[in-house]
Simulated scan of single mutants.
Amino acid sequence: MNDISTVTPDDLTQLRRCVELAREGLEAGDEPFGSLLVDAQGTVRFTDRNRVAGGDDTRHPELEIARWAAAHLTPAERRDAVVYTSGEHCPMCSAAHAWVGLGTIVYAASTAQLTGWLREWGVAPGPVAPLPVQAVAPGVAVRGPAPELEHEVRALHARLHGVAGA
């Protein structure tokens, strides 16, 4: 299923909160990623940010959302929920999202954007291939990126990597 489309004004409101969470993460000494889970009625049910600074590189907010949803939502509620995130899910989080049966993912910045920025700044690639969500979980609908937030997300990652003026 390839459902990539433009984000809506409502999506932008949620994505702005994700960027705030990413900023909170960066200010706490973590990587700048933030995510939230919204149910079918539009209620935010769970929020989190990256927490990998403690040494567990699996502490991504999208994985925490999948774990929380599996424990607290019915399969139907998970299917109808939307996960908003500052950056497109990594392969680990994409797989967890699909296995738990969560609905649409809406992201501010894509994997392709992030890997392009990192390459431009000379940052070595991570240990996992930077695959888009649908390469890992082809049945998951996605919307993004959000051009309105690209500069802000890029600036957070530039700060993380000590890149001036990016």
Rank of each mutant, 00 (worst) to 15 (best):
D80G: 00
A81K: 02
Y84F: 10
Y84R: 00
T85Y: 09
S86R: 08
S86A: 14
S86K: 07
G87P: 00
G87H: 11
E88S: 11
E88D: 07
E88T: 10
E88H: 11
E88N: 05
H89G: 02
H89S: 10
H89D: 02
C90G: 14
C90L: 08
P91G: 12
M92Y: 10
C93T: 14
C93G: 14
C93Y: 05
C93P: 06
S94D: 09
S94M: 08
A95D: 11
A95T: 13
A96W: 06
H97T: 06
H97A: 11
A98R: 14
A98T: 04
A98F: 09
G101C: 12
G101L: 12
L102V: 12
L102P: 07
G103N: 13
G103M: 12
G103R: 12
V106K: 12
V106Y: 08
V106H: 13
Y107D: 07
A108E: 10
A108T: 10
A108D: 08
A108C: 13
A109G: 09
A109P: 07
A109M: 15
S110G: 14
S110Q: 04
S110D: 09
S110V: 14
T111A: 15
T111P: 04
A112L: 14
A112N: 08
Q113R: 09
Q113L: 07
L114P: 01
T115I: 05
T115G: 02
T115L: 02
W117D: 03
W117A: 03
W117R: 01
L118V: 02
L118E: 08
R119Y: 01
R119G: 01
E120Y: 01
W121F: 14
W121E: 02
W121L: 00
W121Q: 04
G122E: 01
V123D: 04
V123P: 07
V123N: 05
A124G: 09
A124W: 01
A124H: 01
P125I: 01
P125G: 04
P125F: 06
P125S: 05
G126N: 03
P127E: 10
P127M: 06
V128D: 03
V128P: 00
A129Y: 03
A129W: 01
P130W: 06
P130I: 06
P130G: 05
L131T: 03
P132E: 13
P132H: 13
P132N: 13
V133M: 13
V133T: 15
V133W: 09
Q134E: 13
Q134G: 10
Q134S: 08
Q134Y: 03
A135F: 06
A135E: 15
P138G: 05
P138M: 07
P138V: 07
G139Q: 11
G139K: 02
G139P: 00
V140G: 04
V140Q: 06
V140H: 07
A141S: 12
A141D: 04
